[in-house]
Design a protein around this nucleic acid. Structure first.
Lengths: 339, 339
DNA sequence: TTGTATGCGTTATCAA
DNA sequence: TTGATAACGCATACAA
């Protein structure tokens, strides 16, 4: 039915090995032979059977990317970046949505896709501190985010504490003092929520501003909706913030929406800064000041690390932790008239 | 190294075929045998080698999804929906970004992934009318969108003309008369731009409102940025619209941003309606009235059709065209005070 | 520089 | 109900 290397070899009058060599770019082939094979391939419309090669080599050229969900802009843009970075290395990306469910994250770690992928880039959300043992998988894996520190695997993350501190310091620098924090997970320490709150509190402390729990907006999942409702809760409690630091952009947009619905002006009455630098923030009204956590750098680094792990021996595996660079993108939600 | 069916068979004291039967849920197996095999699998931590199965069966359980880019919210949400729909059918989705480049779309059609995927859901953007021949691929494919009508393949699309007409009629119903259209592709007929413009013009005509080219905002790619600049161009030309119909939500958000930057109030001065019903529109300020084109339905239908094509004989292939249902979601950008 | 032979791990065919 | 054995299409020692 489908044309195989065999057919090509026959047509070109060479052995199947020679065809294989041509297809794989083996250099020591007589030009005339190569030409013969190439034209046979052309004539027959031959296409390499990737599956057969996979079975033979034990490699698939596919890496998995497990993330909560694509409909969250941050992850969609992260996926985009990972795909582009992987492509540059000749790899294809298979996306797996975990819906932030622990069971699905465990499934990902169980390695059901082990034979289909050469490795995994995993952005966990439900799994956290105390689950380090689950990470001892026997396939190449690179973690994204900061739910788990000092785990047994490579880790690409961002300067959460420092970047969050910088965000709050930036608001303080604008003269704001009553700064709401949106996206707080009370009791959490090692996750993004814990770290960003920590940075926020550090900035307040350094400025001599007492932290006011009435200004903490709890939000489990970091969606626009939860940002809006967390903001609403803070306002309903009677607090009157003059600034908001939302722990991600989605919540910042939701919070900003809630503020404006209530007739508060952004940034005149309340300045808002987010975290993530998703594209949405550019065209919101006002545009959203945010912390760019270095998403592209994270994607590139994660892919590079994974490629290294895939290629390398499993023995000399010293887990590394890489931090991406961050910077504040100043826009209209903190500076009147900014683009 | 890795444990194979062979190892399991040995351990369980049965033949390899029996193990295969158990793994594949073949019913006629003695319970005691099944139990033996299952516990051997458990003991050894055996995992089926999907690659080998793929080679043998010629199926991979993977379907491709080719789309412009994930960082466009519409496509991210579409991908999400397709992945969920595919999962329900036991299929995995491999996403391929074309960056809206013709060369990459052609590559997708060339079937380079043919052996890795069982079929393809393809949302073309660069390929269009006149390219029908390119669509005569010899693997199962379902098209999304409406760049190509009457092609030789299955097609899942939306009621573009009717939905666009409904959008403009809705604005007219609000008493608006000078309605800008954002996202126009002059000269295009069969694409989304052409169809939505057509619906828009139909509504104007039925209401006896003359179409004013000064109110057409050209925008090649339908991003937030182009929506903003198209809106700017319309306003700079001196036109004074009292409403905007943007051909997608991203442009609507960009346009709304531009309007507000210029001090125009939405919806008081200018009412805005978009198209797509992406999540962003819920939390913009004001929230965005939009046309919901039935994205989930489209995803489900596309996957179902593809599954049918994969299973079916290639002979009885009568291309079908399916239209999803649409409805208008009324929000704050057209009705003051709406949520 | 090219050819031959073997096996990757599974499923399918046919018998038993 | 189970087993022996031959493919699936390719890559790779090893030879030539």
């Amino acid at each position: 039915m489908a044309v195989t290397m065999h057919d090509v070899a026959q047509r070109a009058g060479v052995s199947i090995k020679t065809v294989s060599n041509v297809v794989n770019g083996y250099p020591y082939i007589r030009d005339t032979t190569r030409t013969k094979v190439l034209s046979a391939i052309e004539d027959l419309g031959y296409q390499l059977n990737v599956t057969a090669r996979n079975l033979r080599t034990g490699r698939t050229g596919i890496i998995g990317l497990a993330l909560p969900e694509l409909s969250l802009p941050y992850f969609a843009e992260l996926a985009d970046a990972v795909i582009v970075a992987a492509e540059a290395q000749g790899l294809t990306v298979l996306i797996e949505q975990t819906s932030s469910e622990r069971s699905r994250e465990l499934e990902v770690l169980s390695g059901a896709r082990r034979h289909l992928t050469d490795g995994l880039i995993f952005s966990p959300l439900a799994i956290g501190a105390g689950d380090e043992d689950l990470l001892r998988v026997d396939f190449p894996m690179v973690l994204l985010g900061e739910r788990i520190f000092h785990g047994p695997v490579d880790h690409v993350t961002m300067h959460n504490v420092e970047a969050a501190r910088a965000a709050t310091e930036y608001l303080i620098g604008l003269g704001r003092r009553r700064i709401a924090a949106i996206g707080v997970h009370t009791g959490e320490v090692v996750g993004s929520a814990g770290l960003r709150l920590q940075g926020h509190l550090q900035a307040l402390e350094r400025a001599g501003i007492p932290a006011d729990p009435a200004l903490f907006g709890e939000a489990g999942l970091w969606h626009r909706a939860t940002g809006a409702s967390a903001m609403a809760a803070v306002l309903d409690s009677g607090a009157r913030p003059d600034a908001v630091f939302a722990f991600n952009d989605a919540m910042a947009l939701g919070a900003m929406h809630e503020l404006q619905v209530r007739g508060l002006r952004v940034p005149a009455d309340v300045a808002v800064i987010g975290f993530d630098a998703i594209d949405d923030g550019i065209y919101s009204t006002p545009s959203l000041t945010t912390v760019d956590p270095g998403r592209e750098q994270i994607a590139r680094t994660a892919v590079a690390l994974l490629v290294e792990r895939i290629a390398g021996k499993e023995t000399d595996h010293v887990p590394v932790q890489v931090y991406a660079d961050y910077r504040i993108l100043e826009r209209g939600s903190t500076v009147p008239g900014a683009p």
